[in-house]
Write a protein that binds this DNA or RNA. Structure first.
Lengths: 209, 209
DNA sequence: TAATTTATGACAGTCTCTGACAGATGACAA
DNA sequence: TTGTCATCTGTCAGAGACTGTCATAAATTA
């Protein structure tokens, strides 16, 4: 696993510079009030280059949560097949938070920053939900594959949507307080997962009720 | 209940003209490919006037589903308090479809048109979900009021989010086929509601499990 | 009919985002 | 080291969504 070339490293640097510049400007003067020109200037690139890294202004704010969804999908694929769908999804989600916590501290900071931004900015919140739902399709496919469901079976759709909802409500409920570390997130998530577990019949996620 | 004045009638006419022009253009050449200028021209108003009726291009496409949400909220407020939350929400949703069906036929056509458009256009789908979630807050408040929950109780949030998810999955599952009438919608909705009912423990939506 | 309110059109301007082209820079082989 | 090539970047021009402003026209009211 050799170190990537200079070009690749520069690209990563530019990408992070744009993300950090954007998050700071968004926090300081609000999302709508900051222009792409300002972000580009703060990161020392031309406005055109900004759009070579991020398709939209929204993308730069949501790139971290989006990365998280990728991790989640990878983790889900690694869960043992005998695990019921909802349990597998829960563990995959926990793994995302764990992986983040074990990584670089600046990553955690960036993540929390962007998370707070998303919760307090309606436009970004909308975008976040949108991506969550685009991701839902992929989670559904993976669950359907694991369970061997037929393509028009509504159960995988139901299970994944329900799980996504539970996770979202958990995250949202963190919003009023300013969250300093990830453990508060993890705690809320467990709280919601157990509420869901208590509400649902055993075997519901495999159609055996 | 006197007939509104000429000015008010003209406004309603312009509004409907914009909606119809927009929906037709969107269907014919796609949502992104049609410009606001085209819509305004088709409805015989200036582009500036378009924005006096709809804040964004998205709004004109989603105005009908948004109207539906208003109806849903009104219906929910009319449900008897002894009804458990999930049942009350289900009945309110049924009432929306019933009210639509009993109204003008052109309204139903417009509704189905916009519904298909939303499902087939990612940008609009995202916007639709976003409004659904903005509406969620109001539904939560109403359920919390009915049940006398404390403001930081997660249960009303959970119940409403779960219901919204179920309804959404039901609507989405209609997409592949082209829906001609509302009864197909109603049928799918019932299918999903019964799946949810089977999966959940009795009393879950009042915290009595 | 006159006065007032309100809807509309016309115009100018900002911001997001895209295509096209040319110059700069890193990757790689001779 | 040098030359070639692919890729990154800046500059420019432009479309399209959306907003503020002001004058005009139409509806409402006295």
């Amino acid at each position: 696993m050799s170190r990537p070339g200079l070009r690749e490293r520069k690209k990563q640097k530019t990408r992070l510079a744009l993300i950090d510049a954007a998050l700071d400007l968004f926090r300081a003067q609000g999302y709508e009030a900051t222009t792409v020109d300002q972000i580009a200037a703060a990161a020392d690139v031309s406005p055109r280059t900004f759009f070579r890294y991020f398709a939209t202004k929204e993308d730069v704010a949501l790139s971290l949560p989006v990365d998280g969804q990728e991790v989640m999908l990878r983790e889900l694929a690694d869960r043992p097949p005998e695990e019921p769908p909802f349990v597998a999804l829960s563990h995959a989600m926990r793994a995302v938070l764990t992986e983040l916590q074990e990584g670089d501290v600046t990553d955690v900071t960036r993540f929390l920053k962007s998370r707070e931004l998303v919760e307090t900015t309606p436009a970004l919140f909308a975008g976040s939900v949108r991506r969550m739902m685009e991701n839902e399709r992929r989670l559904i496919d993976e669950i359907a594959r694991r369970e061997g469901s037929s393509p028009d079976d509504l159960l995988p759709h139901f299970v994944v949507s329900l799980f996504t909802t539970v996770a979202r409500v958990g995250f949202e409920s963190c919003h009023p307080q300013s969250i300093q570390d990830l453990s508060a997130f993890a705690e809320r998530l467990e709280q919601m997962l157990s509420l869901a577990e208590r509400s649902l019949r055993p075997g519901w996620d495999r159609g055996r009720v």
